[in-house]
């Protein structure tokens, strides 16, 4: 990894994907270059060349921490809020264990995944502070190895020889000023990023508008105020039933109105087809007697209720 304050030179070598990178890294280490100063950049993960030291805290430990925190959050919301502000509903327990389980499962997963993601992003960013050289040929299928020498006992020439031996098709030194320039570019990118995030935030904020408060916004009229509200359509005056009789005219309408009344008042015992098989019928002691008229063939109720 390149340290800009260091006076040493950095060698940057390109290899084919099939190059024995792992062996090379081992040789470089034997030559006295610490692992932190060697960087292998590839367009795809090189599983055979694990040239990094494992992180101090493994990622899965963070995941599990997040998961446990999530369980706690789930317990708090599903059980805690119910306990602190108990609302009785129909003889159900205030805290229902299966519910707490389900909610906690979701919050556990949520926090575990988000924690893993955040930790990963932080680690990626930390890693990218060091590596500096990008070469478009890497994306086209080359592996780059950059070796940073501290200028002391290791000889650039010896390192170069090692790189050549491993099959590097190009080796070039990376100058310090180039490194610095890259860093500034990185800073620019960060600023651009900041603006982008700010823009997104502004957009999100602008989408939040005042919420309606239904009742407060509805027109309300006191009893003596104009305009006078009339009773809703279909209401029947207390004093007269005249309106009722004027309702259905055609036979179809009459049948429909009758069906409706039948459904509301009769169907529970007499059943949808008038067969005396309504869901409540079984609870009546002498239901056969009650339903007989409707079960006969000349019954006026061959109603098809299923349409």
């Amino acid at each position: 990894m390149v340290d800009v304050t260091n006076n040493g030179t950095t060698l940057f070598a390109l290899f084919e994907l099939s190059a024995p990178v792992k062996a090379l890294v081992e040789k470089l280490q034997q030559a006295g270059i610490p692992l932190e100063r060697i960087e292998v950049i590839s367009p795809l993960p090189l599983h055979d060349a694990r040239v990094t030291s494992p992180p101090r805290i493994p990622l899965y430990a963070l995941t599990m921490t997040g998961g446990f925190a999530g369980i706690a959050v789930g317990l708090f919301f599903a059980a805690g809020t119910a306990l602190f502000y108990p609302i009785m509903t129909g003889g159900k327990p205030v805290v229902a264990p299966p519910v707490v389980g389900i909610v906690s499962f979701e919050t556990m997963m949520l926090l575990a995944i988000v924690t893993t993601f955040v930790a990963m992003v932080i680690r990626l960013r930390r890693g990218s502070r060091h590596a500096v050289v990008r070469d478009s040929r890497i994306d086209d299928g080359a592996v780059a190895v950059s070796v940073q020498m501290d200028g002391g006992d290791t000889q650039p020439a010896a390192v170069e020889a090692l790189l050549r031996e491993a099959g590097a098709f190009e080796i070039k030194p990376v100058r310090k000023d180039r490194v610095r320039m890259r860093r500034d570019a990185g800073k620019d990118a960060e600023q651009e990023g900041l603006w982008l995030w700010l823009g997104c935030a502004a957009l999100a904020l602008s989408s939040i508008t005042a919420y309606s408060r239904d009742m407060e916004e509805q027109a309300s009229y006191q009893s003596q105020e104009a305009p006078r509200r009339h009773s809703p359509p279909g209401s029947i005056p207390l004093t007269s039933r005249a309106i009722v009789s004027s309702a259905p005219v055609t036979p179809d309408e009459q049948l429909a109105a009758g069906t409706r009344v039948f459904r509301i008042n009769c169907v529970h015992c007499h059943g949808p087809e008038g067969g005396g098989d309504g869901p409540v019928a079984g609870y009546l002691r002498d239901y056969r007697k009650i339903c007989r008229p409707l079960m006969s063939n000349d019954s006026p109720w061959p109603l098809s209720m299923r349409s």
Partner: peptide
Amino acid sequence: LGWQGTQHQWQVLE
């Protein structure tokens, strides 16, 4: 996210 393709990054991602 400043991806460079270093082995450290690959390892973290994977």
